[in-house]
Simulated scan of single mutants.
Amino acid sequence: MSEERKWRIGIVGYGHVGIYLVNQIQREGDKYNVELAFVWNRTMKKMEATLAPHLQLQNLAEFEKREADLIIEVAHPSVTRTYGEHFLSAANLLVGSPTALADEDTERRLRGRAKLSGYTLYIPSGALWGGEDIMKMADRGTLRSLKITMTKHPSSFKLEGKLAEKDLSTIQERTVLYEGPTRQLCPMAPNNVNTMAAASLAAHTLGFDKVIGVLVADPSVPDRHLVDIEVTGPTNETTGLVFSVTTRRSNPAAPGAVTGAATFGSFWSSVLACKGHGGRMFFC
């Protein structure tokens, strides 16, 4: 019997998450029957000292030549907006920056391409706790509201647009930077609120326009990221009581880190689940 072909993975982005994934594949690839197809980064020089030349993809537009089964975007939402459809034409795609899908046109195009090509558009759970339960409630039509509050040290934020106008270094106490629909928040904090984006996609009956995101800068939490999730469901007709779930995820994080420590392991588990689930969006 011939040996099963290894599942080939292309990594787009060589920041903290990209480096972690490359190391995991090189260290445990044989165990899970996966291997690197390529690695691309906007600054290619960053890889020169740590990655073999044959694994470096100089031109992202030529990704098809590497015959990847799965492409993982961990660079920036703009990469998914620009190349997402192209990736899904030739491979499964794991979107590590799901804030890209807060753009309605991008979500529509990627869902459509997945359906046409038969490849899967994967959304990793990342720091989202209880995502499957939220999606089940949406599927049953019992999800009434969803609010996510993310609290980090001011140095952990990389903000754009109007939020970037605030000098975070001057914050001395807990400060709410934003509260409102996640659709408006995602473009202003594309690297910080991927958990909110994943939740908005899981809560598909509410979506980006009705899921409420709260972004909080708090100098008193320099070593962890907090994610508070508040879910409400239907009202019991007999008792008048409302179904609700509240969770808090406290994720250790280095000072100034955008991604918490536990999220890396969660991401690796998501990658190992991406073995093709048909032409649709799939949460992993």
Score class of each variant (00 low, 15 high):
residue 1 M to F: 14
residue 8 R to T: 10
residue 13 G to R: 11
residue 14 Y to E: 13
residue 15 G to P: 13
residue 21 L to N: 01
residue 25 I to H: 00
residue 27 R to L: 08
residue 32 Y to G: 02
residue 32 Y to A: 03
residue 33 N to M: 11
residue 40 W to C: 09
residue 42 R to V: 15
residue 42 R to T: 15
residue 45 K to D: 14
residue 51 L to C: 03
residue 64 E to C: 07
residue 64 E to K: 15
residue 64 E to D: 13
residue 67 E to G: 02
residue 67 E to W: 05
residue 71 I to L: 08
residue 76 H to P: 04
residue 82 T to P: 03
residue 84 G to Q: 04
residue 85 E to G: 15
residue 89 S to E: 14
residue 99 T to F: 01
residue 100 A to P: 02
residue 106 T to M: 06
residue 109 R to W: 02
residue 124 P to M: 08
residue 128 L to P: 03
residue 132 E to Y: 10
residue 133 D to I: 15
residue 140 R to P: 00
residue 145 S to N: 05
residue 146 L to C: 03
residue 146 L to Y: 03
residue 148 I to R: 00
residue 150 M to P: 00
residue 160 E to M: 09
residue 167 D to V: 02
residue 175 T to A: 08
residue 176 V to N: 06
residue 176 V to H: 08
residue 179 E to H: 03
residue 179 E to P: 01
residue 182 T to D: 05
residue 184 Q to F: 04
residue 199 A to W: 12
residue 201 L to I: 14
residue 207 G to M: 08
residue 217 A to N: 08
residue 217 A to P: 07
residue 218 D to E: 09
residue 218 D to H: 09
residue 220 S to C: 08
residue 221 V to W: 08
residue 227 V to K: 09
residue 228 D to H: 06
residue 231 V to T: 14
residue 233 G to L: 02
residue 235 T to K: 11
residue 238 T to W: 14
residue 239 T to R: 08
residue 241 L to M: 11
residue 241 L to T: 07
residue 242 V to P: 00
residue 242 V to H: 01
residue 244 S to T: 10
residue 246 T to V: 11
residue 249 R to Q: 10
residue 249 R to Y: 13
residue 250 S to P: 02
residue 250 S to W: 03
residue 259 T to H: 05
residue 259 T to R: 04
residue 260 G to H: 02
residue 263 T to F: 02
residue 265 G to E: 00
residue 269 S to F: 09
residue 271 V to W: 11
residue 271 V to P: 10
residue 272 L to R: 06
residue 278 G to C: 12
residue 280 R to N: 07
residue 281 M to E: 13
residue 284 C to Y: 01
